[in-house]
Design a protein around this nucleic acid. Sequence first.
DNA 1: TTCATTTGACCGCC
DNA 2: GGCGGTCAAATGAA
Length: 330
Amino acid sequence: MEMLNQKQKNLLTELFHGLKAAKQLQAQLGAVPSAPPSLSSSSSSCLTTEMKETLLHEIVSSYEKAILMVNGSIQDNPTTEPVELAANLVATSGKVLESPTSISGSPRSQEFLDGESKDYYLSYKKRKMLPKWTEQVRISPERGLEGPHDDVFSWRKYGRKDILGAKYPRSYYRCTFRNTQNCWATKQVQRSDGDPTIFEVTYKGTHTCSQRIPPPEKRENKPNPTVKNYHNDLLDNLRTNLTVRTNGIEGDGFSFPVTPPFYSYDSINGDPGNGGGTFSHVGNSGPSDFTGLISTNTSTGSSPVFDVDFQFDPTAEINTCFHTFFHDSI
DNA sequence: TTCATTTGACCGCC
DNA sequence: GGCGGTCAAATGAA
């Protein structure tokens, strides 16, 4: 059998990555009854909107990278039709695309074959070919942002324009890492004329920068202000309404810490989304390892109540562990 | 000093 | 020529 060259390996890697993410999302949506148990609805239903968004971005980005790789090989092998492949792949990526004609338009096929410099790669025409989708975000005076707007990416505003027939101007944002990482993701934010509390957010392209899966320090220390406020609202709500009954340790339970977490919980072995899960001390320093079992008690009304059984005395640092559990669960 | 935002000008498409 | 989208210099904030 012929050995795969590096380009083909990279292409396969991206395609498998996209397929894996798509299957996870598929299981999450419950589209396939025969989904693997590990991804079935009970365990996967704990995926947050943010995680779903990340999965979607991974899918789209993987397919886009694969397409770019194919384009690269197309230049070596001009008999292939990259644009048709791009249209097919992108169209099945799960987002509602608004510009299929520009993708499949035959005159644009030559643009992929120009073989010009990287700087010119995303010219005006080529940017129009990027995948495009729109999300609606509602602003609530009490709760802040609602809807699928908790994208954790870092955006930089580069323009504002009054749109003909629209009551409110349109704002234009691009990825902060466009220059440093050649990431060409952009988004447009337009306030709805009919309902000022609704913002239409149109994304173009997907992130190819390293923040595609944002590093923990970014989420902890320098989050998007809008996202930070959204999560703070959720945490505040949780702090206010949450009850935790600790079984196995003495004292008054715990309060949420303000310092960053240094522990994580094991969401794979547990089932937080269905009301429970296990957590463990994974730090390299500090107290001896311990584990706990969390389950929800829904018999007391709308406020969440968690029963916790400790395998070992966790010491005061369980606060941090819990912080991680809830921070990752919401 | 660095980075983000603002805003007028410019570019390309329709 | 009008419009949407982007650029880039000026300005402001941290």
